[in-house]
Design a protein around this nucleic acid. Structure first.
Length: 230
DNA sequence: GGGGCTAAATAGATGACATG
DNA sequence: CATGTCATCTATTTAGCCCC
């Protein structure tokens, strides 16, 4: 479930690479069930992970932080109580149990101490290996070959195909209405197009009968979807 | 000459809000 | 109501620094 958060309506995938967020939603209504939505979410998550491997640790360690004063990451002076530099040092974090550190005292090196530290820092970086470890699951995902039954998953359904929980007709965009008590009612087909409002057509039960009106409304809805601009 | 604490940066997880 | 976007919280990594 790495990078995937369960939602009441399905799953959300959200990953960040180099400051860019890659996020996508996989609702079970859109993807034909919880299992299929999860499979899709995982496939997409895997593709993002493979497309955007993390930076090399070595590279990341070179980034200058805002509190850096020397202009060289990992290189800084050791100051005396009076605030005067007494030595320059190079420090690099290789791992919890291995932190490299070398000091170049001014008494030994004079003005060359700083340059020595810069050079030493470069040598230290040479020992830093691997990619930034973002999450234990990352490596496994990058190795894993894509599943071969990917194509068998149902295609994403458009919003207009989704039958909502409160739908009474079994067909999205088709509903039965009774304007007032005693009225035989009518079937309506309605389709919404973003920015353009919606078109609708009604089919009277009094004129057509219940079943015919319903069938015609369903047919009308399908026609509306065919006419609908993208 | 280190040991160890801490701040800064980054990214995953999660909740709030928006939209059709 | 279902889906989409954004903000915020939290965990991890590691440079910078203090102090013995």
């Amino acid at each position: 479930m790495y990078g995937i958060s369960p939602r009441p309506w399905g799953f959300e995938v959200s990953l960040v690479r180099n400051g860019v967020r890659y996020a996508r939603l996989f609702g079970h209504a859109s993807y034909g069930g919880t299992q299929q939505a999860l499979r899709r979410a995982q496939a997409w998550r895997d593709s993002i992970v493979k497309e955007h491997p993390p930076v090399a640790r070595k590279e990341r360690a070179q980034a200058l932080r805002s509190n850096n004063k020397t202009g060289e990451p990992g290189v800084f002076p050791r100051l005396s109580a009076q605030g005067k530099p007494v030595a320059w040092l190079a420090k690099t974090y290789l791992g919890h149990e291995e932190i490299l550190r070398t000091e170049f005292e001014l008494t030994d090196w004079g003005h060359a101490a700083r340059a020595q530290a810069v050079g030493e820092r470069q040598r230290q970086l040479g020992r830093m290996v691997g990619l930034a470890r973002l999450h234990p699951a990352e490596e496994a995902i990058r190795q894993r070959p894509p599943p071969d039954d990917e194509a068998e998953l149902p295609a994403k359904r458009s919003k207009s195909e989704i039958v909502r929980r409160n739908n009474t007709s079994g067909v999205s965009g088709v509903q039965f209405k009774t304007p007032r008590a005693g009225h035989p009612g009518y079937w309506v087909a309605i389709t919404y197009t973003a920015g353009k409002g919606s078109v609708s057509k009604s089919f009277s039960v009094r004129a057509l009968g219940h079943d015919v009106a319903r069938e015609m409304a369903i047919a009308e809805r399908q026609q509306q979807l065919r006419d609908k601009p993208p």
